[in-house]
Amino acid sequence: MTMTGKHLLTLQGMARTDLDALLDRAQQFADGADARGRLAGIAVCTLFFEPSTRTRLSFQRAAQRLGADVLNFDAATSSTTKGETDVDTLRNIEAMGVRGFVIRHREDGAIARLSEVVQPGTVLINAGDGRSQHPTQGLLDMLTIRQTKGGDFSKLRIAIVGDIRHSRVARSDLCALRALGANDIRVCAPASLLPDAETLRGCAVVDDLADALSGADVVMTLRLQRERMQEGLVSSLEDYHRDYGISAARMALAKPDAIVMHPGPMNRGVEISDDVADGAQSLILRQVANGVAVRMAVLEAALAG
């Protein structure tokens, strides 16, 4: 795909041809394609204003494998603690010759706003902003599905279970699934954790978890954000696990070859049980591995021109 010099802020509106091109290239990297020197001499900064394990480290690993110079920004030990604004932080690092920024932020739309102030030739990649989007997580989820279920998403029955209302992962996944032709997407969550109608466009809202899982090819469960309990959106962790937790007994309702996915971090015993998280149907660690390949493809497409 032609993405050189372009920001990756969202999967909303991305054409299927562009999605497929990124996934094809990511698969090549997953299969061991030579990446040495693709970003030689280019500096990439992981600019994270919010904690992260998988996304930050996999972007760093991806940039290293492509030969980039990698700078790691930690908000907790930076001048932001002294009152420096996000814009000033970015501009100062940009002035050091950094061309690529991988940014995570707690506020919706914050990365899009930063994209308006950067110099020509500087590229921003959204590594998760608020509850809005997490485009590379969406891509790695699609790669994981495609590796195991093939490229015809129209044949798949997909169940998404959990806190969809506050999940940037779910929003990116839904954008990608619609673009790739999925037409049987079931979402299941407490009413308090369901998003707006536009987010759920093309989905069937299923109240009962057993109905949502019945005959599913793909089960995607999402982290229950524990702060939602304090907001009164969930009565208790025990009640949530009873009604929406993915267990081996419940997975038996899905197809025998169904796969289980989770973006991490997991709350074991809440949204997913140990026997499922560590079971034969779980592709959670493959998602993590695919994250490196997908982020290599995105960095290359944006910066290697």
Rank of each mutant, 00 (worst) to 15 (best):
225 Q>F: 15
175 C>K: 11
50 E>K: 05
1 M>T: 12
271 E>H: 09
216 A>F: 03
266 M>K: 02
60 Q>D: 13
303 L>M: 03
141 D>C: 07
272 I>F: 05
206 V>D: 14
276 V>I: 07
128 G>Y: 12
274 D>L: 12
223 R>G: 03
168 R>T: 08
33 A>T: 03
239 D>W: 03
8 L>N: 02
136 T>Q: 00
179 A>I: 13
230 Q>A: 15
18 D>H: 04
97 G>A: 08
171 R>K: 11
31 D>N: 15
293 A>Y: 10
259 I>Y: 07
151 G>R: 15
143 L>H: 15
260 V>P: 02
257 D>Y: 05
299 L>K: 01
273 S>E: 04
223 R>N: 06
213 L>P: 00
266 M>A: 01
199 T>F: 06
65 R>N: 14
17 T>Y: 06
184 D>M: 04
136 T>I: 02
124 L>F: 05
126 N>L: 14
25 R>A: 12
170 A>F: 08
303 L>P: 02
46 T>E: 05
279 G>M: 00
197 A>T: 07
293 A>M: 09
246 I>D: 02
109 G>M: 13
218 V>Y: 09
234 V>A: 08
183 N>R: 10
5 G>K: 10
227 E>C: 07
211 D>W: 03
178 R>P: 11
14 M>E: 11
165 R>Q: 08
140 L>S: 12
245 G>Q: 05
234 V>R: 06
122 T>C: 01
123 V>A: 14
131 R>Q: 15
263 P>S: 13
51 P>L: 02
167 S>M: 12
160 I>H: 07
305 G>W: 14
232 G>H: 03
143 L>T: 12
89 T>E: 05
138 G>C: 04
251 M>N: 05
284 I>Y: 09
270 V>E: 00
153 F>D: 02
74 D>R: 10
262 H>T: 09
144 T>N: 10
246 I>G: 06
245 G>D: 06
66 L>T: 09
31 D>C: 15
138 G>D: 01
50 E>D: 03
174 L>P: 00
114 L>H: 01
217 D>A: 06
14 M>K: 08
153 F>M: 03
253 L>S: 03
132 S>F: 14
213 L>V: 00
9 L>A: 11
121 G>I: 10
261 M>Q: 03
11 L>F: 11
93 I>A: 12
72 N>R: 00
264 G>V: 04
158 I>W: 04
248 A>Q: 09
222 L>D: 04
95 A>D: 13
8 L>P: 10
196 D>Q: 12
78 S>H: 07
143 L>G: 08
68 A>Q: 13
56 R>G: 04
